[in-house]
Design a protein around this nucleic acid. Sequence first.
DNA 1: CATACCGCCATGTGATCACATTTTGGCGGA
DNA 2: TCCGCCAAAATGTGATCACATGGCGGTATG
Lengths: 250, 250
Amino acid sequence: MTATGLPADEDVRTLHQQVLAQLRENILLGRIEPGQALTIRGLAAELGVSAQPVREALRQLVAERALELMDNRRVRIPPMTIERFEDLIAARIVLEAEAAARAMPYVTDDLIARMEAEDAGINKAVAERDYDRWIGANYAFHSMLYGAAGQSAFLPLIESLWLQVGPFLRRAIRTISGHYTVDRHSEALAALRRRDTMALRIAIEADIRDGIAHIGSTLIRSEALGAGAGGGRGPSSASSGRADIVREAV
Amino acid sequence: MTATGLPADEDVRTLHQQVLAQLRENILLGRIEPGQALTIRGLAAELGVSAQPVREALRQLVAERALELMDNRRVRIPPMTIERFEDLIAARIVLEAEAAARAMPYVTDDLIARMEAEDAGINKAVAERDYDRWIGANYAFHSMLYGAAGQSAFLPLIESLWLQVGPFLRRAIRTISGHYTVDRHSEALAALRRRDTMALRIAIEADIRDGIAHIGSTLIRSEALGAGAGGGRGPSSASSGRADIVREAV
DNA sequence: CATACCGCCATGTGATCACATTTTGGCGGA
DNA sequence: TCCGCCAAAATGTGATCACATGGCGGTATG
């Protein structure tokens, strides 16, 4: 929405679409604390709209697995476990590698130029420690490629995966930037220029693994990241307690 | 829900979840005509509930790409194009093959037995020309495998793909059953018994391709299947006209 | 007779209300 | 001091209402 590099979602004509776009951005950029319960009325008051649009936006985000509907009927960002995290990464790899390969026939010099520009923005964001812009531009870089073909099937699935990983990606981002020695985006761009599909697949997969590998150890240290009030045994104090663990893990 | 072999969705405590489950089943089994506009009030009256639960269910199905929100703000099953269809199949193959491979460590003899039972049900359904049960049991067979591990990431994505293909799968099912000479499910079961991951991948991919290949030609014959009022140039008569094409294509 | 205009009806969207359930905070007792 | 119980506040769910938009048919006009 703002200057984060996110694709400005068109057709935001209805209120619930605006709310949806805003919530989606907040989730993707990790601005919402995992485990924190989101209330309809609270968000409605915060966004200055009635409850109805918020309700529909939440429902949609639940469908995209960006949010989770607990037994309490409360909504929160689902807690992350090591198993789920590995599943998400595995899904990202197979989907995004395939999407990239299938986009290759539609790659134009113009597209490559725009991706290079976005990549420059990423590097700039990293240098300036602007994490919001970092994640947003990174997403823009990837989705720009996958959307080159009119891939109507892959993009929504990939976006769902990003939304699920986003909140936790953000929290380990400082760890990543320290280890981010090899620039996989450059490799991907080089592969694009050569129209080398196999090299592109490898670069994309490496990019996903690199950007994510260190989160695994973060997760292991904090056991179940974001496992808020719902899962634990503690009745009330668990929420803030776990949140401290999360904060510590960062 | 009924005796279709669909996994009886738990937690249908709220009304909108019941509506959602019912609509989802109707879509997956192809009971809803592609291109036909779904109205909130109409469905509400039909299901005997108020508009509110229907609204939320539709919103969720739109998020899962089972339904499409047109510019008119009307909701319908998205029309199928050859490009989108090929994307969907490609996505199904990479996701389901990977999900199957990742499920292998969790495969037990009990699971194999239950899958064999489901497969027997499939064959029975084919023999009896019970297409609803055919599709439902087929889906149960697959999701049973992918859900063996607590795969929290893959299953929702795969389900979304099934929902997108379902309405059109149904319409070409007679073509399929005629050509269904090789039993890929038997191959998959054999691979499972040998714990042969690579053979399982091959069997799953072949199953998807086999069950679907002939739909492509059906699509080609009818150009854009289900391309209702929204996409075409014709202002009003296109709806019924296209529906006739669909019916003819079956 | 064809076509453009106009008004009515159906529909989606947003807001609000009522009710059941859950959470929370405080109070009393062990 | 700690635990359990109870009342009050908060929240999700479902229903209903008001309004703006889009679709449809009838009618008047060239």
